[in-house]
Computed example of a mutant assay.
Amino acid sequence: MARKTLLVGLAHPDDEVGAAGTICAQVARGDRVVVVWLTRGEMTEAFGPVSQAEVSRIREEHGRIAGEILGCETRFMDFADTFIESTAEAAHRVARLVAEVKPDAVLTWGDAWARGMRHPDHQASGRIFRDAITIARIAKAVQPQAPHREPAPVFTLRGSYSPLPAVVVDVEPHLDRIHELARFYFERIGFGNPEWIDTRLRAAAEPHGLRYAEVFDAWETRGGVVKTLLPASAEGLPGEPPHPSRPV
């Protein structure tokens, strides 16, 4: 079984709560999962009147512990909390990371309409990661890294009213880890009430005949119920033309 790499690109530490079961499922398959947060979530008021530098330090530690709970790699970039903008410069910065990690798929924020999911940092970070996948294919944009030209289909956290196919991950086998992560954040920043998490997972699962599920938008692959996002099949769907390895 070929080992796959899933890149999870998010805005703030604790965003990964919405994909915790999916991350655990991919890790349990024996795959590599790299969670990247663009900011340190330093604008939170959860710690009272302390400096942003101290908040950043605390939240870096949170990210490290979250990675240990989920069994994945974690990284931070140095974008500013609440100031993320989807620009060409931002996409090029993240493209160099994509070229380094060489993911087989990217899970990130998508378009959303509900409060919380439509946080401007969430929306901007999703666009940045999605643009970066394309920029990472361009050698001159990511040098000295080698370009990443293998398929890297996009999955996004699913918002209300999404017209895209839904890919449904059965996360019941990973409930203990999901709840452990939720309790960790709930005790420290007041987000991730385990009862709310449980209700959310059940509601997502019910239409698909499951008990607990996380649901994402499939941008380039088929929807349906799966155990893991990878391997992902685009069989029967229109693809993109091959990228030449050198000028022709």
Rank of each mutant, 00 (worst) to 15 (best):
A2G: 03
L7D: 04
A11W: 06
P13K: 06
P13Y: 05
V17K: 03
G18K: 02
A20H: 01
C24R: 14
A28Y: 00
R32I: 06
V36I: 09
F47S: 02
G48W: 03
S51T: 12
I58M: 10
R64F: 04
G67N: 08
C72V: 08
T74W: 10
T74C: 12
R75Q: 12
F76R: 03
A80C: 11
T82C: 15
F83H: 14
F83W: 14
E85P: 02
S86R: 11
T87D: 15
E89R: 15
A91R: 15
H92A: 14
L97S: 08
E100F: 10
E100Q: 15
K102A: 11
D104T: 03
V106H: 01
T108Y: 03
G110D: 00
Q123C: 08
A124C: 10
G126T: 08
R127P: 03
A132E: 11
I135G: 00
I135P: 02
K140H: 14
V142I: 12
P144I: 12
Q145T: 01
H148C: 09
P165T: 09
P165D: 11
P165K: 06
V167Q: 06
V167R: 09
D170R: 13
L175C: 02
L175S: 01
D176V: 12
I178D: 03
I178F: 07
L181C: 05
F184W: 07
G190C: 10
P194I: 06
W196G: 10
T199G: 14
A204W: 14
H208G: 07
L210T: 09
A213T: 09
E214S: 07
D217K: 05
W219A: 09
W219M: 08
R222T: 10
G224Y: 01
G224F: 02
K227T: 10
L229Y: 07
P231T: 13
P231D: 15
P238L: 11
G239K: 05
E240F: 15
P241K: 13
R246L: 10
